[in-house]
Write a protein that binds this DNA or RNA. Structure first.
Lengths: 129, 129
DNA sequence: CCGAATCCTTTTTGATACTG
DNA sequence: CAGTATCAAAAAGGATTCGG
């Protein structure tokens, strides 16, 4: 096997695609927060709105719809007055949320190093000018 | 501890923030592909351009810059003619890339279920109209 | 070979007001 | 309570051109 063939293969596009596939659910601004909340038990719309600081009703609705469509949440309407809607995480969603831990842990452990690297880079940048 | 306090806490915003912090490096369209390539050994600009199908020189440059700034890549210029630039992944980057596996694995194992859920949702949607 | 600069399109997110 | 509708802004990505 020639030495250069390792590089001509093209970065395992399948792994890359799989990763982006996961991010389509949990990579949006509010996706993970919603899954985290729903993973602890059924939650209602207004409850989520309170639990997730800064989210608008519009973005909550949009994100809930895509999560429901992808089979991550089950939406249950209780025909009461006033209406009551519950969102429940599926086991698929719970697995996804669990698979998220490694990345969160990495970020928690290393964000100081990143901040330091960034400061060093910006200093060097400023010095060059 | 009252029953409702579980919900009033607000979805552990720290975990959520940490996760998004990791995504800032690996969540962009080409970030993971570049880290994957550089994790196997030093790579050159043109090499990356060939290894990653579809990327433009512009996006390659931009993504390399932010990865370098965050301490994920080391950029080495060899003053030859023509100029030659090598990018090497740091141990930080390799750890990050490794932490990515869980999510990739989840996606590979479950993307069929997601496709099925989505088809079912869209069918139900179409039937309602 | 390795970029920087410019211009443009698409995608995502947000503010605000209204409804069964 | 649980949404919709509309408008606007911002961010990300891409095409093309130029330069050391």
């Amino acid at each position: 096997m020639p030495a250069e063939s390792r590089l001509s293969d093209g970065v395992e596009p399948d792994v890359c695609a799989a990763f982006r596939d996961a991010l389509d659910r949990v990579g949006s601004k509010w996706g993970l927060a919603i899954l985290a909340a729903a993973s602890e038990g059924p939650v209602r719309f207004a409850e989520l709105n309170r639990m997730i600081p800064g989210i608008s009703r519009r973005m909550l609705t949009l994100t809930l719809r895509t999560l429901e469509r992808d089979g991550m949440l089950v939406r249950t309407v209780h025909p009461t007055v006033p209406p009551q809607v519950e969102y429940t995480a599926t086991s698929l969603a719970k697995d996804l949320f669990a698979s998220t831990r490694a990345l969160s842990a990495w970020a928690e452990n290393n964000h100081e190093k990143i901040a330091a690297a960034r400061a060093a880079y910006d200093d060097a940048e400023a010095a060059r000018q």
